[in-house]
Design a protein around this nucleic acid. Structure first.
Lengths: 244, 244
DNA sequence: CTCGCAGTGGACTGCGCGGTCCATTACTGG
DNA sequence: CCAGTAATGGACCGCGCAGTCCACTGCGAG
């Protein structure tokens, strides 16, 4: 498991846990996994998809199982056939959202190797947030805010998702570092970038304007840019790379 | 979508609105305000305080009126004597949290006039988040995340609170600008700083570590520092200002 | 064909919650 | 001291919710 080697020194086990969870769905212990036919898998997918949409729109607490049932055209017994209880469904929703969020920005996220590429990722994220016409916020951020109770950190799957995300950012920064473009420790920068993104999305959704997101990412990118090495070939200046 | 329209152009009026709301409590229209005796005001305060704590710890949806009743030693009729319904109580809680959050960082927030002062504010915020032993998150951020529904922006009081907060940051940056230390538009930088703070707090609480908050603020401060004017006396370099 | 289990339908239950109502007590001003 | 109103106590209601249960259907293997 190479993703997110450390979140802050103790994340290995959690990321490992994510892999395990995805592999055997929501059975941490050795309970015999119920076999699903093609039809069963399709129904389960429908439920998770609809639940993810509803919970993103109305929140976890604001989404009842009857809502999910109505939207998916399923019956109560089916929900409890595929999930032990509501929290198990929430766990599946988290995993789905982690996957969705990361795959939606995959090309730009994983190809970061320069300030210009980082700006392309920024543009991608901004575009994603506005594509439905209004700032929808980050599914992971919303889940994290709602599911994080006092004195407890968020569900392990969510923490692992954030760690993976941040790790990919750090990977890009490390590539910049190896190319000699960046002179700074990548990890704190990656954490700062992810935080700027989350905060920007939160305020963007709260205010109904994409502006906070853009301002947050731009400021964070300025911060990263402050750690780029002065252009080695004296003449090819870095500002030439600025996109848009 | 009026909240988006007014977010930037009419921030002052929202701050004004916040004042109005506080003055006449939760009666936007001209309904005769019920007179409260000293005892009544004390009881109301107890209720709001307890509700704010509970809702911060367990979320708004996770806090029942019976919980509030039990903690405050009041009866159901008292809750409905002082508040028309639960949403009115939530509104009062929002106002209280806005006031609490801003006053907790007031000296450092309002005295920003240099990079060093900005760093003192950063340290204050970090210290506030850790003072209870674990990262508790921002009360406003948590409320915003939970109360912002799809396609709707957050409650007006919350948006006004964020606007006030950001306005004070922008004021500090403007002082830096007027002193010639900063060469950039203050407003986007203030929005970016607030977003970094919110995102950092979100991830700090989700992961149970203060690190994301520190990384987020440091990166944002690096971004601001990238816009400080090159030291006028050529020889006294800016890095000399770095605190800590 | 038929047996068995995955998949489905939907009624049912217990309860926690927001909200209502009325009776009673404690101030306060005249 | 005596209204009149603020403040309080607490029973009560209806609803929506998570979760249970049992009967039924349909598909796939032997």
């Amino acid at each position: 498991m190479d993703c997110a080697v450390h979140y802050w020194s103790t994340v290995d086990s959690q990321v490992q846990f994510l892999g395990t969870v995805i592999a055997m769905r929501e059975r941490p212990s050795g309970i015999p996994e119920p076999v699903l036919t093609a039809r069963g898998r399709a129904t389960r997918e429908r439920i998770v998809t609809a639940a993810a949409d509803l919970m993103h729109a109305r929140g976890v607490a604001g989404t009842s199982l009857d809502d999910v049932r109505a939207v998916t055209g399923t019956s109560k017994s089916q929900l409890y056939h595929y999930f032990t209880d509501k929290s198990a469904l929430v766990g599946a929703v988290i995993q789905r959202q982690v996957q969705q969020v990361l795959s939606a920005q995959q090309p730009e996220l994983d190809s970061i190797d320069s300030l210009a590429a980082l700006r392309r990722w920024r543009d991608r994220v901004v575009a994603l947030n506005c594509q439905i016409g209004y700032p929808g916020g980050c599914p992971l951020g919303r889940l994290a805010a709602e599911l994080t109770q006092a004195e407890r950190c968020a569900p392990a799957e969510l923490v692992a998702g954030f760690a993976d995300w941040e790790h990919r950012l750090a990977g890009g920064l490390r590539r910049m570092q190896e190319r000699g473009e960046l002179v700074a420790e990548p990890d704190p920068l990656a954490a700062g970038l992810l935080a700027a993104l989350q905060g920007g999305l939160l305020l963007a959704q709260a205010t109904g304007s994409p502006f906070p997101l853009e301002a947050a990412l731009d400021l964070a990118l300025d911060g990263v840019a402050a750690h780029v090495a002065p252009a080695d070939p004296p003449g090819a200046a870095t500002p030439g790379q600025r996109a848009a």
